[in-house]
């Protein structure tokens, strides 16, 4: 018997863990909040959502991102969630969740908050600035100014950083683009860029 390849990862946010699932059996985007249920999720997960042991499950393609309430310990619940998820998927169930996408305006606000908040000082320290250009059909476009402009490495880094950060909470975002998007041919540099990732945490 072969099993569905999957593993759990801790994230920079101690309240959030992600389960990475291979093989197209988990598809999103969707958000299920505490008190709600979704028939596609394992029954134990729904019970935990109902009981408030889980605050939120965000489903994207190949990934389940789970947030628990601040006062709870992952140690108490992670084993159960993992076991029931593995059982559910290996029994042949597929987790396909699609909740309504939030409006472009809502997404724009979220991006603006990110650019004004956690990112601003980091970007400024590198002599650059990033502004939101537009959000159209869940595609986010940002503009790189100052030192960031023309720096393919920084472009790749920041684009990746913003995208990761936004996707955590807004899985419906399809793409993050930067104007003067030159990094399409410099993906090899993404590796270096990853080392700069801590700025988003």
């Amino acid at each position: 018997m072969t099993a569905i390849p999957m593993h759990a990862e801790q994230t920079a946010d101690p309240a959030v863990m992600r389960w990475v699932v291979r093989g197209d059996v988990v598809t999103g985007p969707g958000v299920i909040n505490s008190g709600q249920e979704d028939a596609a999720l394992p029954p134990e997960w729904n019970s935990a959502l109902t009981a408030g042991e889980i605050e939120q499950v965000i489903v994207t393609d190949g990934e389940l991102r789970v947030r628990i309430p601040e006062q709870r310990q992952w140690r108490d619940i992670a084993g159960n969630l993992q076991g029931s998820l593995s059982k559910h998927l290996n029994e042949g169930h597929v987790i396909a969740v699609k909740t309504d996408a939030r409006s472009d305006e809502e997404l724009a606000t979220a991006v603006q908050n990110l650019l004004d908040g956690p990112l601003a000082s980091y970007v400024a320290s590198h002599g650059g600035k990033i502004t939101l250009d537009s959000v159209v059909d869940s595609v986010v476009t940002v503009r790189l100014i100052g030192a960031c402009k023309g720096c393919a490495s920084a472009g790749a880094t920041l684009k990746q950083g913003i995208e990761d950060q936004l996707r955590e909470n807004y899985p419906e975002i399809k793409q993050v683009r930067s104007i003067d998007d030159k990094d399409s041919k410099t993906s090899g540099l993404a590796e270096n860029g990853r080392k700069l990732l801590p700025f988003i945490s």
Binding site: A3, M6, Q73, G79
Partner: peptide, 21 residues
């Protein structure tokens, strides 16, 4: 907080997934 699965098939699948990551 959570240990890897110990059942052999699940363990093999876990390893595949981790390696890819």
């Amino acid at each position: 907080v959570v240990t890897p699965p110990s059942e052999p098939a699940e363990q093999a699948a876990w390893i595949d997934s981790v390696l890819e990551a």
